[in-house]
Design a protein around this nucleic acid. Sequence first.
DNA 1: TGCAACAATAGGGAAAACCCTATTGCACCA
DNA 2: TGGTGCAATAGGGTTTTCCCTATTGTTGCA
Lengths: 219, 219
Amino acid sequence: MEKTTIGIIDDHKIVRQGLKELLEKISNYTITAEFDNGADFLAALPLESPPDLFILDYSMPGMNGIEVLKALEEIEGEYKVLLLTQHFDEQIIDAAYHHGARGFLHKNCTAHDLKFAIDNIVKIGYNNVSEILKRMRNYDESPSKDAKSQILLSDRELKFLKLVCDERELTYDQMADSMGLSVKSIESYRTALFERFGIKSKVGLVLFSFKYQITPPFI
Amino acid sequence: MEKTTIGIIDDHKIVRQGLKELLEKISNYTITAEFDNGADFLAALPLESPPDLFILDYSMPGMNGIEVLKALEEIEGEYKVLLLTQHFDEQIIDAAYHHGARGFLHKNCTAHDLKFAIDNIVKIGYNNVSEILKRMRNYDESPSKDAKSQILLSDRELKFLKLVCDERELTYDQMADSMGLSVKSIESYRTALFERFGIKSKVGLVLFSFKYQITPPFI
DNA sequence: TGCAACAATAGGGAAAACCCTATTGCACCA
DNA sequence: TGGTGCAATAGGGTTTTCCCTATTGTTGCA
């Protein structure tokens, strides 16, 4: 297991230090990059060996977090960003996901929340997948193509996963009926997910789904 | 869906009334029996049409909740009891499960907790199964035979269920190896659980396990 | 407008899961 | 000490899952 590398973009030195301490304490994370504003960060791209993800503060002088995300979309290369904010603001969350953020956390989350989010982003590219998918879909105007094309699951894959986790315990045949597709199409969804996430079986799909909270457990 | 019927055993009229209000408000529960102490309750047995479960207060004048549970064990007929206490006391919880309680709640739990517990007991006979199993097993002295024979899952069934939910996505063959049994034995565990809980598939076992929190989700 | 890229589909075969029925061996008990 | 009950095992057959390879149709774009 390699160490997860993290970059921090925050205008307060004390916040950067605090985060660094915390991150190195709670798990095997290494901070390999620090910037105290968005412009400096963007100017430094492309990085030779970028960290696995960036923790980006929303409120900063000059560019705010969302503006940084927007600028990132125009840039070659994949930089995964977890956005941190002081306040809950639906607009900001929407905009963040819309512009490719891989996760979103409020600054008074627990250390556990932070670790969970980081690990999810490293492992599957996103935290809080179902939330992201929901918000992307609420937008009528199509989300930035980049954000959309990178997104973890297509609409139909999500629908398929939900059927796999359905308490009626459906066979692939029944799922095909329910989605108006042939079994072969269903099987190709399955195969795609198997390969993408290192899954081996139907049970694995269920475990994956619950682990990353893709399908809400038992409504 | 039939209404769930509930009996209340508590020495305070106001608590009984409060519970009654709450229960009838949060779901389709009907209170069909009320007793203000353990002795009265025991004297009334056997009941012609017993409720689906009893909510039993621990602290009562005369017999306390545990004494009531002990007395119940000597009695013909199945009366499912959810114990309520004012304080958390490991000793009491141990004793309660030891003597056949189907669930345990602290009096300042949420309405949601209460509903969840009641529904679980009605559906599969127990709330918080993994907790119960753990506590039963911590006892060296064998738990009362009655409590043990009624218990939801045997040791091996529990082990089996955990293997089914193992993130390695084991086949039944591999589970057999891991448990030192033949596949056929594994299959008979599977069949037993299928029949007992109306499950149809391996995926169903996983869903069941998570729904009732039998295997802890992702340690 | 021809060529990627991708979603949907298909055939066919191997492995696993599912289901029914039946036997063995052991513990308990009247 | 023969019977009852239960855990473990077995054979054998059906369905579903899993896997590989390949074709069709549609979209987009250079």
